[in-house]
Design a protein around this nucleic acid. Structure first.
Length: 735
RNA sequence: GGACGGUUAGCUCAGUUGGCUAGAGCACCUCGCUUACAUCGAGGGGGUCGUAGGUUCGAGUCCUACACCGUCCACCA
């Protein structure tokens, strides 16, 4: 048999993947049917974090997929009932704004020009294309996901799940509709949640001024234009300078606009910042909104959804905020009301998807109440009893505190708790079209929540859609068929491991815990494995704008998928960022070739004589002492690797597997036996060959999760091969 | 302002509960195309483990402070 001198991933990978697909072993049902596992075996399940249908996969996805595939293949070989369920995420705002900008560029039209129906058609076309690309990329990476169970966050079944979950939360009183201050993105023309806002330090100007000559307290602000909406001035109650004014109301004339300003005392005001007096603009600042709630102040909106001044009968009306600011500053100067102008660093809030500057506005929206106490509706959760009073925040805390879910590495637990402590109600309604339409109907003053309106006519559905994370939060159980009571839910939920980058710990992990415990009555997963971000050679975050992003598919083509996978894993401790220099991928490509050639050598020294060959294949040769010892030492290597994977130290396992194969097996064990193999002493020779054959085959098994293509291909070259795929071989020395 | 992470060979990083004469890959130097592999083999140089203290028989590993780099959260109007 002629085996080429070098390993050729390009010729191998596609062939091997379709062999796996045909075998059906990605699907646990097939594994059960074919006796590779049984209904009594413990389950091991992972839900693939669904990639956004906004384009293509990046290295971060490749990292996640590699981690998950290693675990899945490992546990599958160990005889677990193993399910890895794939899917994609509609990613509401991200996808819609992407398609909007494409259409804008190509056709100079916006979504309103097209209309809701036509626009959604376009977005769906784009999403479909993107989906197909993603699927082929996931396959290229070698992911052994069960395609027969594939899901989409915006498909019919998931829509039912979303509507059901919404109703459950609404009935529990955890979802409410109210006018509250929200993060408004004037560019995307929608609200966004607190977590979708990015803050960036920018140079600003702090202006100190008086509203008018008769007002006793100077105030400081970076946004003079919002001061048109002031209804109070807040001072620290302990501030001797202003004590005497607290409770008084002043009628002021602020550059021609009439304001009624009440002086209130509030602890949040810092005596030492600015003048120690804060002009309260309830409608256009989160902090001020909260002050207003505490003191029952009037809310006066002066900026509209287009970030323009909106005051009836005012000369400022329809002015952009920036222009209004300049205008006001000029006027203050003219009237001698401006005391000071000083440059200051301030953090500017921008929407993460559109980078529009966030304008806080009061709006009628849907929210999830994270602090409201409610009787817990399930009896299935080990750490909360049925009807026990809890809050969503508390549920999220208890799950981690009680170790019902563990996070690896554990230091992220602190970050998680800190986030919960600062969590405010979650605004879930979006004014975009692409997404799950809110299952709420209105008629006059009435609200009805449900998938369909009550029979009587005249009900109008809410035009808004839900935050994309609402549907993602249901992902572990919606993918398994909920709200139907399916076998899959019984068999594979809670999922075993959730793998993700730390950048979406809050967006996703926390909300899954919130949603799954409350709506489904279970934890979504047992363990969270947090991987680091992949950076470029210089340690920079990979991004499109920097042009330094690495296309994992290109890398896979150049070095082979197996080499890419090894490069992603080695040196990447959980939660730590990792770099991907060329040299690393090259080294792993060489390793693949090393495995290839060592295997080639072992195969070349196998005896031609059938009986001897049979004995070697079945490990029936009695080994001489030296060889037996060698095998024994090797077994402890297997144990080590097994333990590392079980403990989620994949980087360690990968390194050990690499090092042992090359520097112990190839450099020492094989080399030491060459003379014996060619010596002519048959017994000695057979013992030597049998040893290296055994070590090779077992090593193909333990390397398989890391380098599945290479090892599966080599496996098929073994004399014992009779269509018995490596993917379902028994893990060696499995306890 | 709060929290977290990093600081170990030229580069990228390991070093799990303190015992290591401090490791790997790449790079570098010398030799070798030996019938698995030159995508290789044999050998070699190179580190006071960020700084300053402390605990200990013993510290890269634990404690305290500081410095620099990075990240997250909050936010001052």
């Amino acid at each position: 048999m002629e085996i080429p001198k070098n390993y050729n991933p390009e010729k191998t990978e596609e062939k091997i993947y379709s062999r796996w697909e045909k075998s059906g072993f990605f699907n646990p049902d097939t594994c059960i049917k074919k006796g590779k596992t049984s209904t009594k075996s413990p389950h091991f399940s992972i839900i693939l974090p669904p990639p956004n249908v906004t384009g293509v996969l990046h290295t971060g996805h490749a990292m996640g997929i590699t981690v998950e595939d290693i675990l899945i293949r490992f546990y599958r070989m160990r005889g677990y009932r193993t399910l890895w369920l794939p899917g994609t995420d509609h990613a509401a705002i991200a996808t819609q704004s992407k398609v909007e900008s494409i259409i804008q560029k190509k056709e100079k039209k916006n979504r309103h020009d097209l209309g809701r129906e036509e626009f959604l058609k376009r977005v769906n076309e784009f999403a479909n294309e993107s989906h197909d690309t993603i699927v082929s990329q996931v396959k290229k990476l070698g992911a052994s996901v069960d395609w027969s169970r594939e899901a989409y966050t915006l498909d019919k079944k998931r829509n039912i799940a979303v509507n059901t979950a919404f109703k459950i939360l609404y009935d529990l009183g955890l979802i409410y509709r109210k006018i509250r201050i929200v993060n408004w993105d004037p560019k995307g023309q929608t609200t966004v949640s607190d977590d979708e806002v990015d803050y960036k330090e920018e140079e600003g100007m702090l202006y100190t001024f008086y509203y008018d000559k008769n007002f006793p307290i100077p105030i400081a602000t970076t946004r003079p234009e919002t001061k048109l909406g002031d209804t109070a001035v807040a001072v620290n109650p302990k501030d001797k300078r202003y004590e005497k004014y607290i409770g008084k109301v002043f009628q002021v004339n602020f550059l021609g606009e009439k304001l009624s300003i009440k002086i209130v005392g509030d602890e949040v005001v810092d005596k030492d910042f600015g003048t120690g007096a804060l002009g309260v603009t309830p409608a256009h600042s989160h902090t001020d909104w909260e002050i207003a709630e505490r003191h029952d102040l009037e809310v006066k909106q002066v900026i509209n959804e287009y970030a323009k001044i909106d005051i009836p009968d005012s000369k400022l009306s329809n002015m952009k905020t920036k222009d209004a600011r300049n205008f006001i500053v000029e006027k203050l100067k003219e009237k001698n009301l401006l005391i000071k102008e000083e440059p200051i660093k301030q953090s500017v809030a921008r929407a993460e998807r559109t980078s529009g500057v966030i304008e806080p506005l009061p709006k009628l929206q849907w929210f999830v109440d994270v602090n409201k106490e409610f009787p817990f509706p399930h009896s299935s959760l080990s750490f909360v009893e049925k009807n026990e009073k809890v809050t969503l925040k508390k549920l999220m805390q208890l799950a981690i505190k009680g170790k019902h879910i563990t996070i690896t590495p554990s230091r992220f637990e602190k970050t998680y708790f800190h986030w919960i402590d600062n969590l405010r109600d979650w605004c879930i309604s979006r004014q975009i079209w692409f997404g799950h339409r809110i299952p709420a109907w209105y008629k006059n003053e009435e609200i009805f929540v449900g998938e369909n309106p009550p029979e009587k006519s005249g009900w109008e559905q809410d035009p808004d859609t839900l935050d994309t994370w609402f549907s993602s939060a249901l992902w572990t159980f919606s993918t398994l068929g909920w709200p139907e009571k399916t076998e899959d839910l019984k068999n594979y939920h809670p999922t075993t491991v959730l793998n993700t980058g730390y950048d979406i710990l809050f967006f996703w992990v926390a909300r899954m815990i919130l949603m799954t415990t409350t709506v489904f009555g279970d934890v979504p997963f047992k363990q969270v494995y947090i991987h680091g971000l992949v950076r470029d050679e210089k340690g920079r975050k990979m991004s499109k704008s920097l042009g330094n992003s690495l296309d994992p598919i290109e890398v896979a083509k150049q070095y082979g998928t197996d080499a890419l996978r090894m490069s992603l894993i080695i040196g990447a401790a959980p939660g730590n960022d990792t770099r991907m220099p060329e040299s690393k991928m090259k080294a792993q490509k060489h390793f693949a070739n090393k495995v290839w050639n060592a295997s080639r050598f072992v195969l070349s020294v196998l005896p031609e004589e059938k009986e001897d060959l049979g004995k070697i294949i079945n490990s029936e040769i009695s080994l001489i002492k030296k060889d037996a010892l060698c095998v024994k030492k090797f077994e402890s290597h297997i144990k080590e690797v097994t333990k590392e994977i079980e403990s989620l130290r994949l980087y360690m396992a990968a390194e050990k597997v690499y090092h042992y194969f090359w520097h112990t097996f190839a450099d020492v064990i094989i080399e030491e036996r060459k003379d014996r193999i060619y010596s002519g002493d048959k017994e000695d020779s057979l013992s030597a060959v049998s040893t290296i054959y055994r070590l090779l085959t077992d090593q193909l098994k333990i390397i398989h999760p890391f380098m599945p293509f290479l090892t599966e291909e080599l496996w098929s070259l073994l004399p014992s091969y009779e269509e018995n795929l490596l993917i379902v071989e028994k893990w060696p020395h499995n306890q």
